[in-house]
Computed example of a mutant assay.
Amino acid sequence: MTKHTIGTREEWLAARIELNEAEKELTRRSDALARRRQELPWVRIDKTYRFETDVGSASLAELFRGRSQLLVYHFMFGPDYTAGCMSCSSIADGFDGIAVHLENHDVALWAVSRAPLPKLQAYKQRMGWTFPWASSAGSDFNFDFNVAFTAAQQREGIVEYNYRRAGHAMDITPAPEAVVQFAAASGTDAPTYSLDRPGLSAFVREDGAVYHTYSTFARGLDGLWGMYQWLDRAPKGRNETGPWFRRHDEYGKP
């Protein structure tokens, strides 16, 4: 028998109207936060970064593909992974549907990872994705934007991720079971897996110069995670006690 509150349609409607006001307030706060993101100072990028893409080597400016804005999803796929991170993969499942809309609104969308391009291409083909994905192998790009770290930083406990030091589950020793599971699913161990982290960075190009405008990490990516937006509106919510999802081609497999 359910333990949830059971009520009449009138009781439901009264509670729903009250909740509606809270949801409207959250929307207004979200709009205000978006404006604050856009008001952040721009930081000019003078360092040269090179990426390997399906059509050859490219600079950061060339990733804009003629647009004035660029969104980069920092996809966790380290050089020693055999498959992309499961969390990043579930987020990326939504990219193909929105990329065309962004491209027609002056925004280029790319995923960028440290794994060599052939690994990314093979995994992209496996997943059936079409969005552009570049390799930053050999570049400082991921390190400079705080989504990749060295083994020395890890050993010394000086990894700074999400604007603080040692504040993430992947910084804990020994690694939590969830991190161990996600690492194994990417074909590596927890310490190696944790050298790469997820994030989103935004850039703008104006008067021939490229500027960094915004970055977010960890739970700051929740809004991009399509399935959770739906689950947050389902009767039982996220309803999770640990890792439950898989890559979309792995459901039904033992």
Rank of each mutant, 00 (worst) to 15 (best):
I158V: 15
V147H: 02
D171S: 14
A99T: 14
G7K: 11
S135R: 08
D207I: 04
L200W: 06
T150A: 11
E160F: 10
E240A: 12
A185G: 13
S89K: 00
T130C: 11
E160A: 14
D93M: 06
S89D: 14
V112W: 02
A166N: 15
H248K: 13
F77A: 00
E103D: 15
A148P: 05
H101W: 08
K124Y: 04
S215N: 04
C85T: 04
R205P: 01
D46T: 14
P176V: 02
T216R: 02
T27Y: 13
S135D: 06
V112M: 06
G94R: 07
N146G: 05
S139N: 05
P79E: 15
R16W: 10
V55Y: 07
W110M: 03
Q154S: 10
R29H: 09
A218C: 12
N162I: 00
R197V: 01
W244S: 09
D249S: 03
K3V: 07
K3A: 09
H105C: 11
Q125C: 06
S113W: 06
S186W: 03
P235L: 10
G223A: 11
A14R: 14
T5K: 13
A137M: 03
A184M: 00
P132H: 10
V147D: 03
Y211R: 14
A183I: 08
P132V: 05
D54P: 00
F145W: 09
E21K: 14
F95K: 06
Q154P: 00
P118I: 01
E177K: 10
R37K: 13
